[in-house]
Design a protein around this nucleic acid. Structure first.
Lengths: 335, 335
DNA sequence: ATTTGTTACTTAAACGTTTAAGTAATATAT
DNA sequence: ATATATTACTTAAACGTTTAAGTAACAAAT
């Protein structure tokens, strides 16, 4: 990499001090430097193709104008979509985004946070993984601004942007019941993460306690999705009282589950009704238009950026706890 | 954001100079500092939870250990998958990734490059957009290391990692012909980008010139995919000699096209044979298992990182031009 | 007893900015 | 004519590191 042009180079060529060049190039208002000298400096800067060194600016100002984005997996379309919106919104605010994938592992997310803190990010947007409360507590202690997205910890005071997961799940199950479904199974992730717990809670609330039996809810491990979901579905279908409807708690679970239904040649909605949480391009090709819970991703991501930028600009103890509403998109999969 | 702990703070507390602290904390080998003082410094560093300021290190060393990734759209699963692999591979090499989406627009990619150069990225991995040769030429002039991925410019000497697009397309069409298809349409993007041109070339090569007619190839604009693909398909199907097979040049084109075939209730493979370039989770739900061209994404992305890191570490004029082979995965959509 | 060497540090400069404080020259006010 | 302001700069310190060069204390070699 060629040595980059610095203020010093311009100063030397213009025969003025570095400070003068800085004043000319960094202030919009002409701050005390004569038009003559200003023009000369600007001309030379252009000639030499001067680009300010953001690293030096950062060191001097203590701000990197960079935000760290930590998601479970950037290759998951749900997070990739969020990442794209965050990227655009951040750019509008003069920020760059550095991202990292935690794979839902607290250890990875911890490493990532340290790594990005060394990089002096000004703040974080985090989809936190399970058992990462301590990491967040550390951030709070160090007064590093951050916003949680998608999930949060109800017993911790933080900024967050999420949806009303409980209501969304409740509405979905209500829909199934209205359509006469009586034994509704749910496939969720085996995690204490709040968004998942809320979805489960919404499910349980909608099902009256009598009919609810523990066997109807199956919780699978993140890392064993591919094997566990088919097994869970089989168990739900093969018991004495087979389910007549199934609710998938995320799009990955939905995709995996629907593939299995296809393999077993179980027809939606005739053999079983289905509702999925979240969208997926894949669902467009499912033979039966799915009923699904649509999260307002653009809003979610934009709000996250805006809250974070605000916290960075003027740190306050006022926390933003934003809960948006999801929408149940009606297809034909639960009629 | 709380003031971070610096070497100065440790030095003050330990009663030594900043340099001593730096020597202790940055050298693995104990370089001349007594065990006593070393231990004391390390202890204090731990106590104060010292984290080195990467920005200061970067300024001093001239290396940011950051790479800029410019893709068309991070929310496109093709690029999101690449991004994830690049992230992991970069981390292994001690690098962070900053990403940006160009939306296939040279203007955006130009802005992005400037923006990331200001951030002092050590190098770039770029899926270049059309007409961005000048930007790359500038990078070359400034001796900024970069590697192109997915596409490249054949008349420009750069590092690149790509697949043999022509052969992949040729093989796909050959397959269709072997299966007795005689009028094979292709839907591609209207762009001079090399990967697309190669795919078109492979298509044209495989079709003997007599049977080839210009009407069989339809090129649509990036920004008008949603409207143009259905129109193109209709034209291919409604002429005097309707096509009996169709080749989609990317997964986005494939998804859009297949949706339209569904809407028109045209059955694959009975009414029409189909081959798609690239994979998609969506294809798993298409009623007919698709025959598609599978790119070795992990290999592609890892090689890109490795080439880049090598160029950063020891800049040379030896360029790496890597072309991998794609694989035609046989489904039932072209039999 | 003097030189030479080694140990264990410290000093100071550098990376590229910003910005408060300083200064010399000229203009304006009294 | 002197004091005060204004203009148009420059100097120097700071941000947090690294690292070459310097130094003081002591040990070993002659």
């Amino acid at each position: 990499m060629q040595k980059r042009v610095s203020l010093k180079d311009i100063a030397k060529k213009a025969g003025v001090s570095i400070a003068t060049v800085s004043y000319v190039l960094s202030k919009q208002k002409n701050s005390g430097v004569s038009a003559e000298v200003s023009d000369k400096i600007r001309k030379i800067a252009k000639e030499l193709n001067y680009r300010p060194n953001q690293i030096a600016k950062s060191l001097q100002s203590g701000k990197s104008h960079t935000i760290g984005l930590i998601v479970a997996d950037i290759s998951n379309p749900f997070f990739a979509q969020i990442a794209r919106i965050i990227e655009d919104e951040a750019k509008k605010n003069g920020y760059t985004v550095i991202f990292g994938s935690s794979d839902e592992k607290a250890s990875k997310s911890g490493d990532l946070i340290k790594f990005l803190l060394n990089r002096q990010v000004d703040g974080f947007i985090i989809a936190p993984s399970e058992a990462s409360e301590n990491q967040l507590r550390n951030l709070k202690e160090q007064k590093v601004p951050f916003v949680l997205i998608d999930r949060y910890f109800p017993n911790m005071e933080t900024n967050f942007v999420t949806i009303n997961n409980q209501k969304a799940a409740f509405d979905a199950i209500k829909r199934l019941k209205e359509n006469g479904k009586e034994r509704i199974g749910m496939i969720a992730y085996d995690t204490q993460l709040h968004h998942m717990q809320e979805r489960v809670k919404g499910y349980k609330d909608a099902i009256t306690s009598e009919e609810y039996e523990d066997q109807l809810l199956h919780e699978v491990e993140f890392s064993k999705t591919k094997e566990s979901v088919p097994k869970a579905i089989d168990e739900l279908l093969n018991g004495a009282h087979p389910i007549d409807a199934i609710f998938f708690a995320t799009n990955t679970l939905g995709i995996t589950g629907l593939k299995h239904l296809n393999e077993r040649n179980i027809k939606v909605p005739d053999d079983i009704a289905v509702i999925v949480f979240d969208e997926s391009e894949a669902f467009d090709f499912f033979y039966c238009p799915l009923t699904y819970v649509k999260q307002p991703l653009p809003d979610l991501a934009k709000k996250a950026v805006n809250v974070l930028v605000e916290q960075i600009d003027k740190p306050s103890h006022k926390l933003s706890k934003i809960q948006l509403e999801a929408e149940l998109i009606i297809g034909d999969s639960c009629s």
